[in-house]
């Protein structure tokens, strides 16, 4: 994660602008596919196919909204010549969970486990949910929850992860509540 921040730091300092903007506690549009309504404020950072919301800092907890992954996309960015798991629209939920778990493992996490895969509503679109646990590159335990759906052959995924101690539990209820407010357009 520090590498992500380092890159972000260099880019934003060069661009002369701030990396994080404020997300107000009102309905927000994610990608062009759906909206959610947070009930607290978040700090948001934007990258290509993902936006990150955090309150205390992404290394402690963050919601990652993956905005429409398409055929051949990786979950996390890396150099072109590195082989990583890729998404394809024919994937069933089991294979999407495998794609996420394997990607997190390749990103340097240890003890990555995806559990309790089950059907779930993503707004009005039938989708899936699962739970996660892993250790960071330094050995700190993290918990996570994921909900996703394929809309128009693109994968929309909401991944909330945080340090097992204090941070994941801190906003879990808020994230669950917010998932209940998903409105697919």
């Amino acid at each position: 994660m520090i590498r992500f921040i380092a890159v972000l730091a260099v880019l934003t300092v060069l661009a002369g602008c701030a990396a994080y903007s404020l997300v107000d506690a009102k309905r927000q549009t994610i990608g062009d596919a759906y909206t959610v309504q947070p009930s607290i404020q978040w700090s948001k950072a934007d990258a290509d196919k993902v936006e990150i919301w955090t309150v205390d800092g992404p290394d402690l907890e963050m919601i990652r909204f993956f905005r429409g992954l398409s055929d051949g996309d990786r979950l996390f960015s890396a150099k072109d010549d590195v082989k990583l798991p890729t998404y394809n629209p024919d994937m069933k939920a089991s294979e999407i969970m495998e794609f996420v778990v394997d990607s997190i493992a390749r990103a340097g996490a240890g003890n990555v486990d995806g559990t309790a895969l089950r059907p779930a509503q993503f707004g009005t679109v039938p989708g899936f949910r699962f739970d996660l646990s892993f250790t960071s590159g330094d050995g700190l335990w993290f918990d996570g929850l994921a909900i996703g759906a394929t809309i128009d052959d693109k994968l929309h995924l909401i991944l909330y992860t945080g340090a097992r101690q204090h941070y994941f539990p801190k906003y879990r209820d808020e994230v669950e509540r917010m998932i209940g407010t998903i409105e697919t357009t």
Binding site: K92, A93, S94, T115, A116, L117, R118, P119, F128
Partner: peptide, 10 residues
Amino acid sequence: PEDRAMIEHY
């Protein structure tokens, strides 16, 4: 299996 719910859904 702990993904029973999903397999039943399939």
